[in-house]
């Protein structure tokens, strides 16, 4: 796979920064790189405009300066929000939501393990009662992570009741953190989105919801924004999880999501292994992004 480098943003940028001076081509390349990184046309225009102003203000022609400025700009924009997870309540209830196939279940498995590494006791609620074999899938992950699991008592049980039982289980057994899996749903399905609202409402009868994590697939394009808006409206999202960052996608759209919605990125997933989940660090993220 010799092409691998040319996919990544850093590949696209390398040619640009290797040159001696900044010229029109540099700006074109920068624009291209940002657009292909899924930053979206609006953010791209902003960043390019912003950098043009800076470059002319500092009167520099060295691409190295431009590279540094790009990094600073991105870092600054990414680090505006606080990425720490707030899991102080006991039990701390974490609801995981997202569209189909973004990696919610896998993320839960990794997250349970992640918390286990900090010696937290975890129970996972398999409230995806819709998709075929989803319960088994999350159960397998829970087992790998050494977490408890609450399964639906019958097939097709109301997800809200599974969520309720999970929280109940956590309270009864003094488990610190309850993570609740939900079925994937496209943000355009009104009925399913209402279901999320209901799940949340039902949980809150027992304990406040500490975090609602929206899982976003890094390969998603500008639709990620629409996803975020819809889930924020219906489920009150408090943090974003970015998955599949081990692929070739750059997930630039999250910048727009974070800025537009004010919801910070909290976790990132970079592989199928159980330990491939880390907290979000703007510095590292930008470093990986632009190389």
């Amino acid at each position: 796979m010799a092409e691998r480098n040319s996919w990544s943003l850093s590949g696209a940028l390398r040619g640009m920064f290797a040159k001696k001076t900044i010229d029109d081509e540099t700006w074109d390349d920068l624009e291209t790189a940002l657009i292909t990184g899924d930053f979206g046309i609006d953010v791209t225009d902003q960043i390019v405009g912003d950098l043009r102003t800076k470059v002319s203000r500092y009167n520099t022609t060295d691409p190295k300066d431009l590279q540094r400025m790009l990094r600073e700009t991105l870092e600054e924009r990414f680090s505006k929000l606080d990425p720490t997870l707030k899991l102080t309540e006991r039990p701390a209830v974490v609801l995981v939501v997202g569209v189909n196939g973004v990696g919610k279940t896998t993320t839960i498995g990794k997250f349970a393990k992640f918390l286990g590494n900090y010696n937290r006791t975890v129970v996972v609620g398999a409230a995806d009662t819709f998709r075929a074999a989803a319960v088994e899938q999350v159960a397998t992950w829970a087992e790998r992570a050494g977490a408890h699991i609450v399964r639906p008592q019958q097939e097709g049980q109301d997800p809200a009741s599974v969520a309720f039982q999970t929280v109940e289980y956590a309270k009864r057994n003094n488990i610190e953190i309850a993570i609740i899996d939900t079925a994937g749903r496209l943000q355009t399905k009104g009925g399913l989105m209402d279901e999320l609202t209901k799940i949340r409402r039902v949980i809150e009868k027992q304990a406040p919801v500490a975090e609602v994590l929206l899982v976003l697939d890094a390969t998603t394009g500008q639709n990620g924004l629409l996803q975020a808006e819809a889930f924020i409206e219906h489920a009150g999202v408090t943090g974003l999880v970015l998955t599949k960052l081990d692929g070739s996608a750059k997930a630039g759209f999250v910048l727009a999501v974070q800025e537009r919605t004010g919801i910070p990125i909290k976790l990132i997933g970079q592989g199928e292994g159980i330990n491939d989940l880390t907290g979000f660090t703007p510095h590292v993220f930008v470093q990986n992004l632009i190389g």
């Binding site: 092409e3 899924d38 996608a249």
Partner: peptide, 18 residues
Amino acid sequence: IDAMIGQDAVATAKAFQA
């Protein structure tokens, strides 16, 4: 392929084609 995929569609499609 997921209709929601972004710019990465091209790279991914090329990789799978290869």
